[in-house]
């Protein structure tokens, strides 16, 4: 598979702040790639560097093998879906979607056909004559998608694409975006601070912290084998156990009550929270608090707050993070 995007030692500062500090990154053709991290970790700046809204202080950015480090955005074969959608308020939905083709001097008949097709793709037929102000958040999001996709870019960049939507719509759009990407085969790069979003949609995830990528891999790799306390804590719930001067991470669903695993520890139940499908039980073990997530499948009786119990897990699920 060929490389769609390559960043080599890319750095960008804003005044004194090093927003991106020497990032190396390679993204393949057709990949669904997530850049995950807390705010201020540099993930959005990397996206803006790829789009061309910012130019790097040093390092090289390649799109499809061509060095575009100093190329303005209008000459790059990438398109962006903005967090606030950035739809042109004075244009209709159709005019918005047509805009990219119009500035590239595509003939009027052709661009109307293509714009309509793009709107169809995002399930917005019949909304062509509306203004963005007359649409709901979810519909605006679809227009923004259509407006970017109609240009058939090499790479589609999405900046917190689902951030402004409510929870239910967000889950629907996660599935839809994934299907859309599989369908058209364009490389998608999206920025998010929501670990669940990254885990559900992305083929590969880069976890950012303080201007750098701290871990990169598949959702499973990152969840099952976090390489640092930061990643363990940022992606999913992490249980950190201090043992013999080392820090061990165990995921909450891997811990069971009673004996069963090859590691056992006595503890006291601190709190029990009913979450619907799951019950979350915090257990104090020495100075550490372990979170246990247990399924409410009706097969077990949960301990109550204050109970002295034993928990256990398999040592293969332990990861040393510090």
């Amino acid at each position: 598979m060929s490389t769609a995007i390559r960043l080599s030692k890319v750095a960008k500062s804003f005044g004194e702040v090093k927003a991106v500090d020497g990032v190396d990154l390679e993204i393949s053709d057709g990949e669904f790639f997530a850049m995950l991290g807390p705010s201020g970790s540099g993930k959005t700046t990397v996206l803006r560097l790829i789009a061309g809204f910012e130019l790097p202080d040093s390092g090289i950015i390649e799109i499809d093998g061509v060095d575009v480090s100093q190329t303005p955005p209008f000459n790059r074969d990438v398109n962006t879906v903005f967090q606030d959608y950035a739809l042109f308020p004075h244009m209709t939905v159709l005019e918005n979607v047509e805009y990219g083709l119009k500035v590239k001097k595509v003939a009027k008949e052709e661009r109307i056909v293509r714009a309509r097709k793009a709107l169809q793709r995002v399930k917005l037929e019949g909304y062509e004559a509306r203004k963005p102000g007359q649409l709901s958040g979810g519909q605006r999001q679809r227009v923004a998608l259509a407006r970017a996709l109609v240009n058939e870019p090499k790479v589609l960049l999405l900046d917190e694409p689902l951030g402004a939507l409510d929870l239910k719509l967000r889950h629907e759009m996660q599935v839809e975006l994934k299907e859309l990407q599989r369908d058209i085969g364009i490389t998608f790069i999206f920025v998010t601070h929501d670990q669940e979003e990254a885990l559900t949609m992305a083929d590969r995830i880069a976890v950012f912290n303080a201007g750098n990528i701290v871990q990169m891999g598949s959702a499973k790799d990152i969840y099952e084998e976090p390489n640092s306390e930061f990643v363990a804590g940022f992606v999913g719930i992490s249980n950190l156990l201090h043992r013999d001067g080392k820090v061990i991470s165990i995921r909450p669903e891997k811990i069971k009550f009673g004996r069963g695993g090859d590691r056992t520890a006595p503890g006291q139940v601190v709190s029990v929270m009913f979450l619907g499908a799951l019950t979350r039980i915090n257990v104090a073990i020495g100075a550490d608090i372990l979170t246990v997530l247990a399924e409410n499948d009706g097969t077990q009786v949960f301990p109550a707050t204050g109970d002295q119990i034993e928990v256990s897990w398999n040592s293969k699920y332990e990861f040393q993070v510090g």
């Binding site: 789009a51 061309g52 809204f53 303005p72 955005p73 209008f74 990438v78 398109n79 962006t80 903005f82 967090q83 606030d84 950035a86 739809l87 042109f88 805009y99 990219g100 500035v103 590239k104 407006r147 970017a148 240009n151």
Partner: peptide, 21 residues
């Protein structure tokens, strides 16, 4: 919003086109 200007540029418009359209 500045993102409107960025969006225009992102979609291939030069500064001049962004200004007029």
């Amino acid at each position: 919003p500045n993102t409107l200007l960025e969006a225009s540029s992102d979609l291939g418009a030069s500064a001049r086109t962004t200004f007029t359209s």
